[in-house]
């Protein structure tokens, strides 16, 4: 079973991505989720994965059903997920688990967390236990973000 970081601890992942073998409920693509959500609006506890071009606003009608939103970072340097996360947390008001997955290492954790991610499925080569320190890379911030840190204008 895969290990992930959730709420700043290394834990086992209960979910299974589309196409993966094994136990656990499946994380649906946005299209698959929207197709199923339209049919069965009561399916609570589902999970969806957004690709970089997916519009997070499409999830607004279904937020109560969602237990997990995964945002995929398929390549090193992919940055759309940071905006998707801020939109989900702020404009959409999503409160459930928000996971960053893909070509990510500890070097992105600080910024991902500021944008509202609380779970992280990093590159398999990354040392997760050693990565936890990266959440405190910086102890201050100039901007307002999802994490509610001190914005510069409040100095």
């Amino acid at each position: 079973m895969r290990s992930i970081i959730r709420d700043r601890a290394v834990v086992a992942d209960a979910w299974r991505y589309a196409g993966e073998a094994g136990e656990g409920p499946e994380v649906l693509s946005l299209d698959a989720f929207l197709a199923s959500a339209a049919g069965a609006s009561s399916a609570a506890g589902t999970a969806v994965i957004l690709q970089p071009t997916d519009e997070p606003e499409k999830l607004i009608p279904y937020l109560a059903q969602l237990a997990l939103v995964v945002i995929d970072f398929p390549k090193v340097g992919e940055g759309r997920g940071f905006s998707q996360a801020q939109l989900l947390r702020q404009r959409c008001g999503y409160r459930g688990e928000l996971r960053a997955r893909g070509a990510l290492k500890r070097d992105q954790l600080f910024f991902l967390a500021r944008c509202g991610f609380d779970s992280f499925d990093l590159d398999p080569t990354e040392d997760l236990a050693a990565s936890l320190a990266a959440f405190s890379t910086f102890t201050a911030a100039y901007q307002r973000a999802v994490d509610g840190a001190l914005p510069l204008q409040s100095r």
């Binding site: 340097g77 940055g79 940071f82 905006s83 600080f110 991902l112 910086f138 100039y142 901007q143 510069l152």
Partner: peptide
């Protein structure tokens, strides 16, 4: 200077196109 500070480590805009 305001823009320098705002743009420094902006969490959303660190991996632009």
């Amino acid at each position: 200077e305001l823009i320098r500070q705002w743009s420094t480590f902006h969490p959303e805009f660190t991996y632009l196109p």
